[in-house]
Amino acid sequence: MSGWFMLTVVGEDRPGIVARLTAALYDGGCNLGEASMLRLGGNFAILLMVQWEGGAARLAALVEPVTRSLGLAQHVDRIEGRLHQHVEPDVGITVSGSDRAGIVAHAVGAFAEAGLNILNLESGVGGSAERPLYIMHIEGQALEGIAPLRSALEILRREGIDASLTPIDTLIG
């Protein structure tokens, strides 16, 4: 009976990590589900849904030679994974402003109070070292409708955080 695992690998980025990792998993008899790879501040990070017949320890042992040789850290969790469990976002929110401590907690806290269930969050720091600029993009479900979120955006704007909202209306055709 095979189960799903979440394999997390992080470390210094270099070309070829994904290829070597997925080759080791394939050769070891794993099946991949959904995956997300990111580069954050020069660091490589990947989350992989892996279907595998052994336990977590054996899966960790399978990828360990690859991660060790590349100097990466790995982590394996058994998950209650299933494919085809997508939840569609109905709103996208972009937050931007001068980078300062607490901007994420403050903005996201306001959205949570306004009924936002976050499905995706990505942020980056741009600008220059002297004048850093923070940009965050969120997709989620507006569980209490769009109106409370608009009010939350208005409050953030009065505090100097620029925030805008776009309803996501998925077309099926």
């Binding site: 085809h84 997508h86 569609e88 976002p89 996501i168 209306d169 998925t170 077309l171 099926i172 055709g173």
Partner: peptide, 13 residues
């Protein structure tokens, strides 16, 4: 930009 799905590509947008 807008979000799309398709009867011919179930469960993906």
């Amino acid at each position: 930009v807008g979000r799309e799905g398709c009867l011919s590509v179930p469960d993906y947008t």
